[in-house]
Every structure is written in C-alpha cells, then in structure tokens.
Design a binder for these strands. Sequence first.
DNA 1: AATCATTCAGTCAGCGCTGTCAAGACTGCG
DNA 2: CGCAGTCTTGACAGCGCTGACTGAATGATT
Lengths: 330, 330
Amino acid sequence: MEDVAHLAGVSLKSVSRVVNREPHVSDTLRAKVEAAIAALSFVPDTAARSLAGSRTFIVGLLFDNPSPNYTMKIQSGVYRACVEQQYHLRIDNIESDRPHAEVEAQLDAIVRNSRCDGFILTPPLTDNIQVLAFLERRNIRYARIAPNSELGRSPCVAIDDAAAGALVARRLWNLGHRRLGVVSGPPLHRAGDRRRTGFLAAIRELDPAVVVAEADGLFSFESGIAAGADLLARDPRPTAIFATNDDSAAGVMVACGRAGLRVPHDISLCGFDDSWVAKSVWPYLTTVYQPIEEMGYVAASLLIDRGETGERQVMLGFHLVERDSLAPPS
Amino acid sequence: MEDVAHLAGVSLKSVSRVVNREPHVSDTLRAKVEAAIAALSFVPDTAARSLAGSRTFIVGLLFDNPSPNYTMKIQSGVYRACVEQQYHLRIDNIESDRPHAEVEAQLDAIVRNSRCDGFILTPPLTDNIQVLAFLERRNIRYARIAPNSELGRSPCVAIDDAAAGALVARRLWNLGHRRLGVVSGPPLHRAGDRRRTGFLAAIRELDPAVVVAEADGLFSFESGIAAGADLLARDPRPTAIFATNDDSAAGVMVACGRAGLRVPHDISLCGFDDSWVAKSVWPYLTTVYQPIEEMGYVAASLLIDRGETGERQVMLGFHLVERDSLAPPS
DNA sequence: AATCATTCAGTCAGCGCTGTCAAGACTGCG
DNA sequence: CGCAGTCTTGACAGCGCTGACTGAATGATT
C-alpha cells in the first residue's frame, strides 16, 4: 500500500479511503490512486484489514445435514456474491440435532474462531430459534434462506412455496386431471408443507368437490417409493401425482414402474426443486425450478450490503420446468 | 493473549510458544499456560496470526465443474481436517476449460487475494499441468486428489482404480458371468480408464478367450442410457455390465428397463463411486465404494502437516458395496 | 467582513500476534 | 572448577492496514 501511496503522491490514508470507497474524496485524488493501484495491481491484505478495522471481509455459511445438491447450489451463489464484493467465504457445519448445550458450544467455537462479518443460515438452521437467539445475543448479523417464520427478524430470501404448489395444481388441472395425489414432506419442513397446502387450496378453488389423495413422504427416494405405492393402491387411482420434492418424485416413479404403470402415459408426475435427480430418472421429471443458487447470492448480498439498500425480505421467482413426466389423462 | 500471559505469570511470547507447539518449552510452563488458556477459553486471532507470522491458517480448496455429490464429500473431508488442526477452509472455483491466459488470471486473482498456506486440487484440476506449474512458480504448496500422472510431484491421495476394476471383474466372474460388458468414462478421465483396463486385465487373466463388450460412456446418466442400449443389442447379449461410474450405471439400468430386462434377474449391473445415485434407483445399485470424504481429509492433512510426517503419496482402500443389482446369470 | 459548517487530506497510534535477538539457567567435559 | 555449548525464557519491533484526530481550504450564512 505504501508503494501505491508513493506512486500516486498521496498519503497512506488516502489510499485507504479510495480502497474503502469512503466519502469526501476528490475525483482527482481518486483517479490518481486508482491509476496507481492498477499499475501495481495492488490487492489489500485481508488479514491486516480485519486486524486493524472492524470488518473481517468474511461471510460464514452455516450448514446442517447437507443435502449435497442443495448445499452446493447455495454455496456457489454465496460464493459468487463474495467474489464480486471482495469478500471471502467460510464454510461451517453445525449439527443442530444435538442437545441444546452442545449446539451452543459448536456455535460458540465457530464465532470465536472466525470472527465473521455475518452468517448465512440455510434450512433447517434457518428456523432454529436457538441459533437465531444465540447470534442475536452476540450481536452478530445473519441472513436466512427460505425461513418459515418471523420473516422480519432478519434479512431473508425465499420463494412463495404456496404459490408454487398452486401453479402445479393448475397445470395438472388444465391438462385434464381430476383424480390427484400429493406426497408430503417431513412433518417439520414448513416450506414443503406450504407447497402441499398451496396445491390443495388451488384445487379446492377450482372444484371444491375434488378430493386429493394424500400420502406421507420424507423427501427421500425410499419414502417416495412407499408413498407412491400407497397412492397407486387408492380407488380410484390418481391420474396425476405431485411429489413435493424431486427425490420423492423419483421414488414415486419407481413405484409406478413396479405397478406396471408408464409415466406419463398412464400417470403424470410432477416434482419440486429441479434438482439433479430430475434428470437422473427416465422419463425426465417435470418439476418446479426454484432459484437456489440465486437465493445464496441474494442472501450474501443482503448480508454484505449491511442494510444500506432497502429490501430486507426478498421473494424470488420460480417456474415450472416442463420435461417428460406430464401428459393428459389417458 | 495478554490476559493469558498475565494469569499464567509468563511472557506473551511464551504463550505464543505453547499455542504454536514450539520446541524448548518446559513442561511446567506449558502446563501453566494451558491452564490459563482453558480458564479464559482463549482462542488466538487468526487475522493477527497471519499478519504477524508467515502462515495464514487457511487452506484453499480449488474446484472445477462441481459434480455436487463428489464436491460436497471432498469438501466435508477437508473441512473435518481443518477443524481438527484449527485451520480455516476457503473455497474457490476455477473454470479450467477457458483459454490459457484466462485460467492464469483466475489463479492469480485467487492467490493474491487469499494468501492460503496451500491448495487442494480436485480432478480435473489435479492433472492440469498449467495449474501445477503456476503454483510451483509461485512457490505455493498443494496437495492433489486422485491424480493420474506424476504422483511424485506433490503430496497426493488416491485409490488404486485398476485394482478396483479387477475386483468387480472377479466378483462378476465368480457369480458365473461369462458374457460381460463395460461402459467407459470420458476419454480424458484417466481414473475411469484405469477402472476399465483393470477390469479387462482381470478378465483376460481369468480366461483369455472371453471377449468383453465395450461401449463408450461419458459418466453421465444420458450417456449411460445410450451405452446400455448399445451393449444390450450385442449378440450374444452380456449377462453382466460394469459401468465405470454410478451415473452411467443408472442410465444402463433405464436401458435395461426399456428393453424389458429386469435387474438383477435378467442382467447384473455394477456401478462405481457409491454416490448418491446408487440409492436413487431401483433396485439399489451394487457399486464400488471409494472413500471420497476420506480423500479430502487426507489431502488436507498432508497439506497442513507440511511434510513433517513421511508419507507423501497415500493410497486409500475401496470395497464393493453389495446391494441389489447383482445375481448369477439366469 | 467575520463566523461557522463542511469537505478534503494527512498524521499517528495500535489492532493481536510472531520472528529475532539476547540473556539467564543449566549441562557436560577437560 | 571454569568454559563452551545447549535449553529455556523474555523484550521488543513490526506485519499492513484503519479509526480517531487534526488542520487547511472552501463555501454558506449572518
């Protein structure tokens, strides 16, 4: 930095001002400094910055029970935001199903150790009141991804799961399906539940007389097989099934195969997530895309911007990805 | 740290010595300091350590084209090693399929920006000579995961892919299969090729007269469908197929389904990786487990140990995970 | 014309640790 | 018993940057 200051003929502090985009810097000075920075391809030292200043230029990403696909996508979005803003990304893992005290200890170790500027929370951490309270007590900023409660409590980013469920409902309805089935997610997964209730509500609105067959799923492939078998055994048998995530949809597809039913000729099937499974089954799964990578990006941006911009709650879009698992009832 | 020194009645430097496990520290002093550290639950400040010293306590993990599953597993292994050694993990992404100069620029930005103690390289970066040369030119340490060439060039960790291929060959042979098929990986994936050649060599040894049907795959689901269809059309039709990764094995399974063949009753199928796909198909795939998470762990340990321990090249074990896709020929 | 507010640039201490050097306490050996 | 050599501890500067402060110059206000 000294070299830069020398080359530009200004003080160290002025270079610092330019680097940090502080106000009260004249255009000529800024220009000189920027030229010098470019000439020397100067990069400020993160360690020194965080030691001297109050920021650390690190955002922490907290995970729990990583579903590889989801986790990876969130991470790459967060990473992209970090690179753009010259921040670093630190990953940490929490096992939130441990006893209270132990979770607290894990958190404590992480925050002591990493002095992040803030954390990004992914489900199920997102709705873990204990974690939220801990962070608030320590006065640590955090942003949440896909929270299910107390949206105002922190910056957060999500999609409208109920509306997405309704979208699927309308699509199946418009195809002509009147005997519908739905596979739920784990009991505590509120987002999954909102997909289900949104679906149900939309059908009820279309025709209150239609009853939708329901089966319990756990968002796993295996649970999808069971739920599918369950649904297929109903009388009358559904002509279309909405599984609230892709893994269980893949399971339902296996159940269909075992029952001798071909997708989509004999039965239509729709998943949710547009995860990697959707293209690892045959036929390729029609599913709802949710912008997971983008959610990571937005969450990180929210955190880094330090509330300078207005929006604290961001709702992102979603859309149906039409592939090969939907058809009119035969 | 000052508080610790005070409480233990020693100098700052002595605390530093204990924290860094430096030699020439008496047991009594160490004990005093450790007690004080525990009492105050002191955690050294990483920023200050890296500013003052030569180490940064950060290991960088370099990725390219993340296959979510593999990437996640590597990452969690590396993470585990980092936590144990009080290091931090930084993730960075390289797009190595760009032109030479651009890759160089990406690398340059990363090393300038993050001053890591070393990097961990995953395939295909592992065998990218350009990346290796760059790091060496800058005198930056690195460890490689599953390299295919110049093993001695750096610390690295891998499995014996050829032996794993041979293991599959013997298993299928012992089941009684004599008409065999194999699905290869992408042309440049050397590890995949060694699985294939290891398989072929083992069969040749068992009976030189047996010819193995071969089909080209790309490690993708879709390519597996095509390769499976190809193999199934041969005359005589193979009774067992070895796909050199799980994704293509899943594709082969679809091809079998479409051809009206049931796995494993009509045809046996073996994958490789024990990735998450292996349990997202029905029947569950018998496959070769390779300790991906462990490879990440070992690579990070190799990097952090700074060559103090002897082993620079570590070969890890693998084993067959018997699930439901193998049976004697019908 | 005098006063005050505001913008712009610079000085300097110090963030929390480690590397270097030096001094004191030992040890072994002639 | 003395001297070189080794082990153990401490003093202190300084890593590269930023926050708090100071001072000068400019503009706005009475």
